[in-house]
């Protein structure tokens, strides 16, 4: 399973994450932590007319949480806040294309939790 877990797509996104860095003057900035392992992710969003026009992330984390943030930020560009709010754990797992054990669920979900908490009041 773990050999599967660390397949090329995960390692690629971990080593060369997309949308990494701050967005200056972001509409929304939301940080979430996983206190168990010390992972931190901050999500930056620019929102216009309910649509995510730009999104990026910063922080430090394991391969799974970093790849998840990278893939999620790619996915959410141009989506509406509702679409972001409706993403589930299963959706996150399909973006990652690997199966996620309960122990790693927190890692996989960290960026999505940040997006959801950051946009919760905007609907």
């Amino acid at each position: 399973m773990t050999d599967e877990l660390y397949k090329e797509v995960i390692l690629d996104h971990y080593k060369h994450p997309h949308n990494k860095g701050k967005l200056e003057n972001a509409t929304v900035k939301q940080t979430e932590q996983n206190p168990i392992c010390g992972d931190v992710v901050t999500i930056y969003l620019n929102i216009a007319d309910n649509v995510i026009t730009d999104i990026s992330f910063n922080g430090c984390g394991c391969a799974i949480s970093t790849a998840a943030a990278s893939l999620l930020t790619d996915h959410l560009k141009g989506k509406t806040i509702e679409e972001a709010q409706n993403l589930s754990r299963d959706d996150m797992v399909s973006l990652l294309t690997v199966s996620i054990s309960p122990a790693r669920t927190k890692c996989a979900m960290l960026a999505l939790v940040a997006v959801k908490n950051g946009t919760a009041g905007l609907r």
Partner: peptide, 8 residues
Amino acid sequence: HAHDVAAL
């Protein structure tokens, strides 16, 4: 990351 090391 330590988590990935422990998973391996």
